[in-house]
Each structure stands twice: as structure tokens, then as C-alpha cells.
Amino acid sequence: MAVTCTGEGRVLRAALSGEVDHHGARAIMEELNRQIDLELPRELTIDLEGVTFMDSSGIAVLLRAWRRVGELGGSVQVVNVPAQAAKVLKTAGLDKLMKFA
């Protein structure tokens, strides 16, 4: 699992790769929180192109990021969602809280 973040002008992009499961979710959340605290983004894009597997822990990761960015008055967009991860996230209704592209 890896998180690569780039940010500029209160716009943050976080690319996740590997498995997003109960083993790595805490580290992902900690890194996302750290980056959000540094950048204070109005827009957060989470790129899941490199994700090979996601369980329900991925729901918690995205919800926590969405909640934190929402506290800053910002929005979250999720892009390049693999089919398996899309099933997990959409079944939980996350597509009603944030934009999936």
C-alpha cells in the first residue's frame, strides 16, 4: 500500500496503490490526514487506479477524508476506480456523498 500526494493552491491529489484493507487502512488514513492538514484543500481528488484490492476498510478511508475536507468547506472526487473497489464503495452509498468519475 502506498499513498502519493501532490498539492498546489488548495487542491490536493492523492494516488493510492496496492491493497486497501484492514492491514493498511490506518496508515493510509494517517497519511491522508497529514496531507490534508498541510494543504488545507478545497478540492481533494483520490485516484484509485493503482488499487489492486479494497475491502470495507476503504469505505472508512474515504469517509474520513470526505469528513475532514468537508470541515474545510471542500469537496472530494474519486477517480479511476477499479471495478472491484467500485462495488464496495457504491454498495456503501459513497457515490451519494462524493463524486465518482
Rank of each mutant, 00 (worst) to 15 (best):
L32A: 10
T52R: 12
S17E: 15
E39K: 00
E19R: 15
N80M: 02
V88M: 04
W66N: 07
R26W: 05
Q84V: 04
S57F: 03
E71T: 07
V79C: 05
E71V: 01
S75W: 01
R10Y: 06
K90Q: 15
L97E: 08
R67I: 07
V78N: 03
E43T: 11
D95I: 02
A83Q: 14
L62A: 08
V61A: 05
M54Q: 06
V76M: 00
A2E: 15
G93F: 06
N80I: 03
L12K: 05
V79S: 08
E19M: 07
L94R: 05
R68G: 01
I36F: 08
V88K: 07
N33Y: 11
Q84E: 14
A85E: 05
R64Q: 15
I59W: 03
S57K: 01
M54K: 06
V88F: 07
V20E: 03
R64I: 10
H22K: 11
G93D: 05
H22C: 13
I46Y: 01
K96D: 10
R68L: 12
A92C: 06
V51E: 06
T4D: 15
Q77F: 00
L32F: 10
M1A: 14
L97M: 15
E30G: 10
Q77L: 08
A101T: 13
R68C: 00
A60S: 14
N33G: 14
V11Q: 14
T91I: 13
T52C: 03
F53A: 02
S17G: 15
A83W: 07
E39D: 07
L62V: 11
T52S: 15
I59N: 04
F100W: 00
G9N: 15
V61E: 05
L40H: 13
M1Q: 09
P41F: 02
V78H: 04
A85F: 04
A15R: 13
M54W: 08
K96A: 13
R13E: 15
L63Y: 03
S56H: 12
R13Y: 02
S57M: 01
Q84W: 00
S17F: 03
D55H: 07
M29C: 14
A86T: 03
K99I: 09
A65W: 10
W66K: 02
S56P: 09
M98H: 01
G9L: 04
E30V: 13
I46C: 01
H22G: 12
L38W: 09
L16S: 02
D55S: 08
K90Y: 01
Q84H: 14
L44E: 01
Q84D: 12
C5I: 14
S56Y: 11
E31S: 12
A101G: 15
A92Y: 07
V61G: 07
A65R: 06
R26N: 13
N33K: 14
V81S: 03
A60G: 13
R67G: 08
S75N: 05
G18I: 00
V79P: 02
D21I: 11
E19Q: 13
T91Q: 07
I59R: 04
F53H: 09
